[in-house]
């Protein structure tokens, strides 16, 4: 299922970023599909993007003078979250795939957990509350318009999927790059380098979309169960989990991305 999952991740990334001509021309897809959100973190300024990133869409509606709250995007997140939870992170997020592929690079000092790891994972909820919700809603300009602060200051997916391809194809965008782009490029490089050492560091510590879906993991339709009669608590499942979860104790932990590694590792077929 491991290779099968990567095939699904790649196919989904291609399907939702299928406007390939955009990469050559440095233009965006402008059809009506773009009004729909995709479940994963996928910048809508990616030249190939056929849909909208829910985090970007949420900030843009929250920050608009007209609305102040987004029934449309919150409803979408409720629908997808209650159905799939963090299955989205494991199977349908292009930036998750990028991080996982980088983690396959051989490196002697891979780190799977450390002191303070669990506490640091709470940072993504702060990012969600402050950069995605509070600042776009309350920190507005004179006309009442908010700024997508998460996209502007933190999102490495926007730099990778939108910034770099557009700069490569468009001289005017290239010449407009300044200090902010330097910050975002440095952040992107740091995240990509960290992926070699840590498993999905952005998902674990910073992703606000992962934070939203994590809240749904314990109650989503798609969730795991452990057969207590079969489980011997041998620890095989916990040992293979890149997200640092012990599925035998917490099969629906908010950090579980439903990659299915634990199911394959279980010698007693106890996880379903």
């Amino acid at each position: 299922m491991g290779k099968w999952r990567h095939a699904v991740q790649a196919a989904w990334a291609l399907l939702t970023n299928g406007h390939l001509a955009g990469f050559v021309r440095g233009t965006l897809y402008r059809g009506r599909l773009k009004g729909l959100c995709v479940p994963g973190l996928n910048c809508y300024s990616c030249p190939g993007a056929l849909g909208s990133c829910p985090v970007g869409a949420l900030q843009s509606v929250l920050g608009s003078r007209k609305f102040g709250f987004s029934y449309y995007v919150v409803g979408f997140l409720l629908l997808v979250g209650a159905l799939l939870g963090r299955f989205v992170c494991g199977w349908l997020c292009p930036f998750g795939l990028v991080q996982e592929l980088l983690h396959k690079i051989p490196f002697k000092w891979k780190i799977y957990t450390f002191r303070g790891d669990r506490a640091l994972r709470l940072v993504k909820y702060v990012v969600l509350a402050v950069l995605v919700l509070a600042l776009p809603l309350f920190l507005t300009d004179a006309s009442g318009q908010g700024t997508p602060w998460f996209c502007k200051l933190l999102c490495p997916a926007g730099t990778l999927e939108g910034g770099l391809p557009l700069m490569a194809a468009d001289e005017s965008i290239r010449s407009a790059a300044g200090g902010l782009f330097a910050w975002k490029a440095a952040l992107l490089l740091a995240v990509l380098a960290a992926c070699v050492v840590f498993f999905r560091p952005f998902c674990k510590y910073l992703c606000p979309l992962g934070a939203i879906y994590a809240l749904f993991n314990p109650i989503a339709v798609f969730r795991s169960r452990v057969d207590d009669e079969k489980c011997t608590h041998c620890g095989a499942c916990a040992q293979v989990c890149g997200m640092g979860v012990d599925p035998s104790k917490h099969p629906n932990d908010p950090e579980c991305i439903r990659c299915g590694k634990c199911k394959r590792a279980c010698p007693h077929d106890a996880i379903g």
């Binding site: 009004g35 910048c43 809508y44 300024s45 449309y72 700024t147 502007k152 926007g158 700069m167 965008i173």
Partner: peptide, 15 residues
């Protein structure tokens, strides 16, 4: 959402 998504988001790409 559509009108925002069809234009290049300068914040998103770091400009």
């Amino acid at each position: 959402v559509l009108s925002k998504a069809v234009r290049v988001c300068l914040e998103c790409i770091g400009i």
